[in-house]
Design a protein around this nucleic acid. Sequence first.
RNA 1: GUGGACGUAGCUCAGCUGGUAGAGCCCCGGAUUGUGAUUCCGGCCGUCGUGGGUUCGAGCCCCAUCGUCCACCCCA
Length: 441
Amino acid sequence: MSEIIEPLRGMNDMLPDEARWWNRLESVARDVFSQYGYREVRVPLLERTQLFKRAIGEYTDIVEKEMFTFLDRDGQSLTLRPEATASIVRAAISNGMLHNQRHRLFTIGPMFRGERPQKGRYRQFTQIDAEAFGYEGPDVDAELILIAARMWRLLGIPRDRVWLELNSLGTPESRADYREALRSYFAANEGALDADSRRRLAGNPLRILDSKNPALAELIAAAPLLTDYLDPASREHFDGLCRRLDAAGVAYRINPRLVRGLDYYSRTVFEWVTDALGSQNAVCSGGRYDGLVTQLGGEATAAIGWALGMERIVLLMQELSLAAPAEVPQVYFVMAGAGVAARGLQLAEVVRDAQPGLRLETDLSGGGIKAQFKRADKSGATIAVVLGEDEIARGVAAVKPLRGGGEQQECPFADLAGRLAHLLGTAAVDGDGAARQDRCR
RNA sequence: GUGGACGUAGCUCAGCUGGUAGAGCCCCGGAUUGUGAUUCCGGCCGUCGUGGGUUCGAGCCCCAUCGUCCACCCCA
């Protein structure tokens, strides 16, 4: 045996039991997007490094130390996307989608960040991403938040486990004023700061507000508030958003210390937070980025979006035991004897043609009838269909209910599809749980 | 990137102060030879994460490395 090749750190295989949960989340997301008229786009995973430097900000942690960047054969610098917004904006510009147009879009796919892995934080992770272009007012801000709230509701995530934090960063100008105020405040108290915060003091003092160091809590609590520096237009925009959320019955907490790690945000920023995932508590977050399109060479376009971490939501669903129904076969073909499987395969095709919705699994192991029955039972199937040399010769199948009683009966091949449908229909009316949880997506 | 914990069969784990690995589950077979979920019997399964070192001898000690998890950091 030769050496085993291990997967890369922080990159995971998704096996069938795991995929169930993902499919559920993805189908809910797709349904909701379709309800709101958001259309899917797909963009490349690989882009020029420059795109992310310009969009996310040269001096952010993501760009400085987390990107998977390499030179291709022609010596140009490429980067595996660490987030989707930059790529989508680039695509919108590249395809001329922003000339006097509005778009509401979503995308689903993997992102890459070279962080140290932890639960809920991986080097390849998957985001569901929603973006709206060309809408200036707070209506679309509210709509995007309502979309997320609807997803939580449909998934069965209770309101007290995921809640909304809200803030406004104002315009770049008002934020600059605030940054100076903050800088002088923390500079005056520099002795009380920890090493991380001192480093940020020069670069991005807003990030100090994010610190989880309890020793700084008091100092941070007394710091000047961004809210007090908002320009009137941003203030009005923010109030408008709050009113709309109030009207829609969406609860939120205004968090004046909520800032974002990406440079492109302006005005509205928000974060859906959970208490169920340890320190990886942000489950979906986003905000408005009105300046980004011009920054990337496009025409000035209002824009806003959010990204949802699928791994984290799936973890949350599992934590809360939110059912992800297993895909269980309804009918299981037991096929024992010489040459029986070949005929059984044909018969299974006939049944599938006649009953396209039916989940029918065949036992192709070639093993003994007893073992096949064990598998039939374990599969969760409601009905076993037995085919042996005898049955094949007589043109009949033995149909045996595996759950909730009922006698084994013979059924001519020609009637099999109808008989199975009938039996399964009856089983469902019985209120038999197993027969009912068959509806996965 | 920093600090810490952990890493034994496919899975969950046991293995006393170092003496050449064990349980349950799973899987396979059997209990009058074509009928499942209980029970009983039997069987398969490991280079004890990897590489070095100490020792007569290491799963247990030391070093390195990889990985997972926790906190920081970051963020979805």
